[in-house]
Simulated scan of single mutants.
Amino acid sequence: MADVSGDGPLSGLVVADFSRIVAGPYCTMLLGDLGADVIKVESPAGDDTRTFVPPVRDGESTYYLAVNRNKRSIALDLADESDLAVARTLARRADVFVHNFRPGSMERYGLGYDDVASANPGVVYCAISGFGTHAGAAMPGYDLLIQAASGMMAMTGEADGPPLRAGISAIDVMTGLHSAVAVLAALNHRGRTGRGQLIEIDLLSSALSSMINQSSAYVAGGVVPQRMGNEHPSLFPYGPLPTADRELIVVAGNDRQFRILCDVLGRRDLAADPRFATVGLRNHHRDELRPELAAALASRGADEWAELLTRAGLPCGPINDVRGGVELATRLGLEPVVDVEGVPMVRNPAVYSLTPPRYRHRPPALDNAGDVVRAWLARTT
Rank of each mutant, 00 (worst) to 15 (best):
A2R: 09
D3R: 07
D7T: 11
D7G: 13
P9V: 12
L10Y: 09
D17T: 02
S19E: 05
I21H: 03
C27R: 07
C27Y: 03
M29F: 03
L30I: 14
L31W: 03
G32S: 13
D33V: 03
V38H: 04
I39Q: 02
P44G: 12
D47T: 01
D47E: 10
D48A: 08
T51I: 05
F52S: 06
V53Y: 00
V53R: 14
P54S: 04
G59A: 12
S61H: 15
T62V: 15
K71H: 07
K71Y: 06
I74N: 04
D83W: 04
L84I: 05
A85E: 15
V86H: 04
A91F: 06
A91C: 11
V96C: 06
V98H: 00
N100C: 04
P103W: 13
S105C: 05
G110M: 08
G110K: 11
L111D: 07
D114R: 13
V116R: 07
A117N: 10
A119P: 01
P121H: 06
A127Y: 11
S129C: 08
A138K: 09
P140G: 05
L144D: 13
Q147P: 13
G151M: 05
A159R: 12
I171S: 01
I171Y: 08
H178K: 05
A182G: 14
R192T: 12
E200V: 10
S206N: 01
S209A: 14
A217N: 14
A220H: 13
A220I: 07
G221C: 13
M228G: 10
N230Q: 14
F236E: 00
P242A: 04
V250K: 06
V250R: 13
D255F: 02
V264Y: 08
R267V: 08
P291R: 08
L293I: 12
A302F: 11
W305M: 06
L308P: 07
L314K: 05
L314V: 10
G317V: 11
P318M: 01
P318W: 01
I319D: 01
N320K: 00
V322T: 15
R323D: 11
E327T: 11
L328E: 11
A329Y: 04
T330H: 09
G333Y: 05
L334A: 11
V338F: 08
G342L: 10
R347V: 03
N348R: 05
P356C: 11
Y359P: 08
R360A: 11
H361V: 00
P363W: 06
A369P: 01
V372P: 03
A375Q: 12
A375N: 03
R379G: 15
T381L: 06
